[in-house]
């Protein structure tokens, strides 16, 4: 091959990816960089945003315990949501995988169908069921005399975890499902022929093999829950804020953009570190199953 052709070949990948690359840079990298820059700017009630480089916002976040509480709550909710989806989603995927043809596709549709409906609509559903005295379930239970006061759901962390787990469930089920598809269809028979009972089979054979699926599902659910906006906004409102709704409030209510940008940046950085870190850990731990 001639040198010129070789050079042309070397350039071809860049030329081919250029449009996508430009889009990526234009709509993701540049706004992101601007947000990071913004977090170092100054802001005052009357003077507005001043394009200077100061650490005021970062200092405020670091020292004011209000922000620590906010982030701690965000991650607590995300962790609990992740646990709940794993606890329910993994068995769900396993049962789904054992169903026969027609039922399998029907229930897969039932599980994935909600993805077609807006998160807002799905969360509002919970509000309609449990929202204070007027919530359908609360009303029914109260009139039946089962409970005296409405079950507290709105503006509680429990409510937020339940609603988020509901929204995130398909991601966990899909992820475990994918891991189950990789299992040898005869693996359970093999264990059975060696004398293993059903519980031993699940605990010793199935679980270790779908663990990578559960963990990658957990990473997806965790990062989506920690950065979720719509569900916390509807369930928690401005009474029970998390990092995402906090950043939103700083941007649109207080109009303190630089502080909002600092909160958003911190959330992003924390999430990236957690996700990349745990991913590396999982891949090392499960190298044998992943290959």
């Amino acid at each position: 091959m001639s040198a010129a052709a070789e050079e042309r070949n070397a350039r071809a990948p860049w030329a081919l990816t250029a449009p996508a690359l430009m889009l990526f840079v234009g709509v993701l990298l540049i706004p992101l960089a601007m947000t990071v820059m913004l977090s170092f700017h100054d802001w005052g009630q009357y003077k507005g945003i001043e394009p200077v480089f100061i650490l005021k916002n970062w200092k405020e976040i670091a020292t004011d315990p209000y922000y620590a509480e906010m982030f701690w709550r965000t991650f607590r909710i995300a962790i609990l949501t992740t646990l709940l989806t794993a606890l329910l989603g993994a068995p769900e995927a396993y049962i789904l995988n054992r169903m026969s043809g027609r039922w399998k596709s029907f229930f897969l549709l039932v599980i994935l169908g909600p993805l077609l409906i807006s998160v807002v609509a799905r969360t509002l559903g919970w509000a309609l069921l449990f929202g204070g005295n007027n919530g359908l379930v609360n009303k029914l239970l109260m009139s039946a005399g089962v409970i005296r006061f409405p079950i507290p759901f709105m503006f509680t962390e429990t409510g937020m975890v339940v609603a988020l787990a509901h929204v995130m469930m398909p991601f966990m089920v899909l992820s475990v499902w994918a891991a189950l598809q990789r299992l040898d269809p005869q693996i359970e028979n093999a264990a059975m022929s060696l004398g293993a009972g059903p519980i031993t089979i699940i605990r010793r054979i199935i679980m270790p093999q779908i663990m990578p699926g559960v963990l990658s599902g957990a990473i997806i659910v965790f990062s989506l829950s920690a950065s979720a906006f719509a569900t916390p906004a509807i369930i928690g409102g401005r009474r029970l804020k998390v990092a995402a709704t906090l950043a939103y409030d700083e941007f649109l209510n207080t109009l303190n953009w630089p502080l909002g940008a600092a909160v958003a940046t911190l959330l992003l950085v924390a999430l990236v570190l957690i996700v990349v870190g745990s991913n590396a850990l999982i891949e090392r731990r499960y190298a044998e199953v992943f290959r």
Binding site: D184, P185, Q186, I187, N189, A190, A191, M192, S193, L194, G195, A196, G197, I205, P208, Q209, E288, V289
Partner: peptide, 19 residues
């Protein structure tokens, strides 16, 4: 029950426990 038959089986796909 198959778990109690005490037969040895080698599957076409081997069905080894990869973990």
């Amino acid at each position: 029950h198959p778990a109690k038959r005490g037969l040895g089986i080698v599957f076409q796909s081997y069905a080894l426990f990869p973990h």
